[in-house]
């Protein structure tokens, strides 16, 4: 019942979402070329909804992947410092003045991806020295890295001009404001690559969700598969963060929400998690736009405000028995 309600809510918001915003659309003008409504709908609203959907899917899939690979419910790209790495990379690109119109988009994205990717490599390298690898120590490492990156970003702020800092601050707030189809297509590509790689290795992942040792003893090359899936995930996260900035909470809560709503084994939850994450972020984004505040409410605030209480409800309800 709860499931049905949630999906109905999600799908209807998804369909209505492109029509919500600061400017009311004239539906009769929608298919008329060069009309304001046509441009608004096809160049701003629709790309944004599609982008939000892929962004939510990437965050939820990555969260699920990290929690499974490292068997810890707190593991996400966010808590492991990978998002912060991407933010720092993108911040450095902005500070270096690489955010020009010609090369701007590309170099900020590239630096964002490098930040995420290098952080993953660093985590994998450092985890070799941990006795209880892939567990609490790794999480602590991620938190330490996050704090380190935040401080490094402060230095970038300190050295930046006020114009650059304004760009940086807006960037770190996270925003789904995009124009045109370039970004949704790019993100869609990496999102599908991530989904595909996870689906391809779903049986290995199922074994690894038990324990790393047990998976190896059943014949899974856990090191290779961890590395491969982390690569796809950091690619997707890097691309996402470099375009939209960091969006917290989705990667942490969506996999758990899906787990509570669908208590089935991991390999059957992959597709549901991707869809749920996508719809969830579109839902949150629709609310930021429907509120019609002076300037747009950062998306991360809404994901936390809506996701938090629902998450707590599910945890309490789940522990009642």
């Amino acid at each position: 019942m709860l499931r049905l309600f949630v999906w109905l809510l999600f799908v209807s918001t998804f369909l209505l979402s492109p029509f919500v915003g600061a400017v009311d659309l004239d539906v009769t003008q929608l298919l008329v070329h060069d009309s304001l409504s046509h441009t608004l709908f096809f160049e701003l609203r629709l790309p944004r909804v599609v982008f939000a959907f892929f962004a939510g899917a990437v965050l939820a899939l990555s969260g699920m992947l990290f929690q499974t690979l490292f068997r810890n419910p707190l593991m996400t790209p966010y808590t492991l410092g990978i998002s912060s790495g991407a933010v720092l990379g993108a911040g450095i690109a902005i500070k270096l003045g690489l955010a020009t119109l010609v090369f701007g988009v590309a170099s900020v994205s590239l630096f964002g991806f490098l930040g995420a990717f290098l952080t993953v490599l660093l985590l994998i390298y450092l985890s070799q020295f941990l006795h209880t690898a892939y567990n609490t120590s790794l999480l602590l490492l991620g938190i330490a890295l996050s704090l380190f990156y935040t401080s490094a970003l402060m230095i970038v702020f300190y050295l930046g001009s006020s114009i650059q800092n304004d760009m940086l601050i807006r960037f770190t707030m996270g925003s789904l404001s995009i124009i045109g189809w370039e970004h949704p297509v790019l993100l869609g590509g990496v999102a599908l690559a991530l989904l595909g790689s996870i689906l391809l290795y779903k049986y290995e992942l199922q074994l690894m969700s038990i324990s790393d040792t047990s998976a190896r003893l059943k014949g899974v090359d856990t090191k290779k598969i961890t590395l491969l899936l982390l690569l796809f995930s950091s690619l997707a996260i890097g691309v996402l963060v470099s375009i939209a900035g960091p969006i917290g909470f989705v990667g942490l809560i969506v996999p758990h929400m899906v787990g509570k709503l669908y208590p089935i084994t991991i390999e059957k939850r992959i597709l549901i998690t991707a869809l749920f994450g996508g719809f969830f972020l579109v839902f949150c984004d629709s609310i930021t736009r429907a509120l019609q505040t002076q300037s747009e409410l950062p998306i991360g605030i809404v994901t936390a405000l809506i996701g938090g209480p629902f998450f707590i409800y599910l945890i309490v309800k789940g522990s009642e028995k």
């Binding site: 068997r71 969700s209 038990i210 324990s211 040792t213 003893l217 787990g259 208590p263 084994t265 991991i266």
Partner: peptide, 13 residues
Amino acid sequence: YVPAQLEIYDVTI
């Protein structure tokens, strides 16, 4: 290999 105890993350299986 049969371990001494179950080491498992996803107990819903």
